[in-house]
């Protein structure tokens, strides 16, 4: 179990993370929040890039700062837009990361090949990374994060740049892993975690707002999601007046979907809420 206890990070007068407290067991946990919410700060502290100002993180009851390299041995981290050495081949990088993560040489070669196969990069294993597309880099980023069979996998926007087929493949891969390990999945793409996340962590201004399963969160939005079919001028007016709104297509017409506590328009009809509505409702103007 991973426990965050009153985790705080301050940069001068600015509080990036404010007494963040949560317990995570095995499964996929999605971290949702707008830009600047504190998601990256939380992940950077977890992987050891920065130290917290206060509070600590426990893994199975032990402070990870005391575990040091033993904790780093069990984590896999895929940053957003991972950068690689352009003159290295994919296989070079995997071997290098195997070395960095202390994988014995006799096991490393086999494991590297297996992981490259799982992310569909076998044909490109001897190609220079400089020639890779964005999607290929993301897949390679995932492969290197898994090289040490981590118990905690931290993924920062892992599906950015992947086409729909690759995103489905990625989701399936992560879902298969999540039975035995803890996956912290940071994303803006709600559809990526809708079907796989065990629980959602909503974070804003460094604070944890909510931690709940998707059905529970969606249930809370009952009676707060509306759709209305206005004329063209009405659309612009509604979008301006209600920032938590979006345009949707209904029967070949454009409707405005509004998240609001009360009925926003006489013609508005209550709808079944979605996870995206939860995001809009929680993060309000920041999300719009």
């Amino acid at each position: 179990m991973l426990q965050f206890k009153e985790l705080t990070k301050q940069y001068g007068n600015f509080t990036a993370l404010d007494r963040f407290t949560v317990d995570l067991e095995s499964g996929i946990y999605a971290l949702l929040g707008p830009n600047g919410a504190g998601k990256s700060t939380m992940m950077n502290i977890l992987v050891g890039l920065i130290a917290p100002t206060n509070g600590c993180i426990y893994y199975d009851g032990t402070d990870i700062s005391k575990m040091d390299d033993k904790f780093r041995d069990i984590i896999g981290y895929m940053p957003q837009y991972p950068g690689f050495y352009p003159n290295f081949t994919a296989m070079d990088l995997m071997r290098y990361m195997a070395q960095m993560k202390g994988i014995p040489r006799k096991d490393a070669e086999k494991r590297c090949l297996k992981l490259l196969e799982s992310v569909n990069l076998t044909e490109k294993k001897d190609a220079k990374i400089g020639s890779f597309s964005g999607g290929m880099r993301q897949r390679l980023g995932l492969a290197q994060a898994l090289i040490n069979d981590p118990k905690i996998l931290i993924l920062d926007e892992p599906t950015a740049g992947l086409d729909p087929k690759e995103r489905v493949r990625f989701r399936n891969m992560v879902r298969r892993l999540s039975d035995q390990i803890t996956v912290i999945f940071c994303t803006h793409i709600v559809s990526d975690i809708e079907t796989i996340a065990k629980e959602i962590l909503l974070i804003h201004h460094g604070k944890l707002l909510k931690k709940a399963a998707i059905p529970a969160l969606v249930e809370e939005m009952q009676g707060k999601v509306w759709e209305v079919l206005p004329d063209q001028d009405g659309i612009e007016h509604l979008l301006d007046e209600y920032p938590r709104s979006s345009l949707v297509s209904r029967n070949m017409q454009t409707a405005v979907r509004i998240v609001n506590d009360t009925k926003p328009h006489p013609d508005a009809v209550s709808c079944k809420p979605l996870l995206e509505d939860v995001y809009l409702y929680m993060f309000g103007d920041d999300a719009s």
């Binding site: 992987v47 050891g48 390299d69 837009y81 991972p82 950068g83």
Partner: peptide, 11 residues
């Protein structure tokens, strides 16, 4: 190269 995040979080 942007590798620092991955390397610093390695073992």
């Amino acid at each position: 190269s942007g590798m620092y995040q991955i390397l610093f979080s390695s073992k």
